[in-house]
Amino acid sequence: MRAFDYVRAGDTAEALREAGGAETRFIAGGTNLLDLMKLEVMAPGKLVDINRLDLGGIEATGEGGLRIGALVTNSDLAADARVRRDWPVLSRALLAGASGQLRNKATTGGNLLQRTRCYYFYDRGEPCNKREPGSGCAARDGMNRILAILGTSEHCIATHPSDMAVAMRALGARVEVEGQGGAREIALEDFYRLPGDTPHIETVLEPGQLITAVILPPPAGGRQIYRKVRDRSSYAFALVSVAAVVAVENGRIAKAQLAFGGLGPMPWRDADVEDALVGETPSAALFDRAADILLAEAKGHGGNDFKIPLTRRTLAAVLTQATEADQ
């Protein structure tokens, strides 16, 4: 690990003041950042510890949603009684991720910002445009079994590894951000950037900006499912995952909010898929049509070709379960 300066900030204003300079990173749980620093994939010159900031609460919002402080741990969020009752897809997604020890340390803000688990990003002996812009992408013709089929570019085929963010995307969450220029909210759908030719820039956050909270809109109701397909039944990243909020009324689909993990560089959501489902009678043929729309632009890279049929089947399984009568 490279040497760095360490500053423990007492409040948000101090953290923002200390965060000037491109070499500075905030540290909260540190479960991903320190791992990457040990490998010198990331080598910040300065860490600003934000664990003493007052960002640890979960509060009801005026509109009937929840404001989740950026420092709320994945464990506490998954176990929150309100989340379990009214946003169960979020509890399920959190519980499907990592291990008990990691969930106790990993935070809401940090989870959104975790880096890809692409093998070549971690391996400093290989080219990677995300780690070292302009060096190339070893994954496209390499071991890409776990990597993306949607939203990729010739420069990067990395996936975003979060489960939590997939559920938040399905729920229409917003990210509260604070910087020297003040506070603002960013819809999660606008928060991440496609890789294009700058895969090292993953979000719209500017240097020195801090995530302070995630806002959940009021409960979406419906049947909520998080289905994660992976190589082991526990403690493994998703090959494909689906977060679904689906309601059926009078035999027709009244609501379909669907987000996907393991497919793209960000938690993936496609309004055309949802539009094709809403108003229709659930059927295998309909679910197949939805998959056609979702996967129209999907591109495998050899090792991950299997994700295309796997996504089709996982989506069908989730929609079947979500629309079954009496459960």
Binding site: R8, G30, T31, L34, N51, K105
Partner: peptide, 13 residues
């Protein structure tokens, strides 16, 4: 009281 991985956190924190 909470279990964590002590390898993935800095002592000074």
């Amino acid at each position: 009281g909470r279990r964590i991985n002590s390898c993935l956190t800095l002592a000074c924190m």
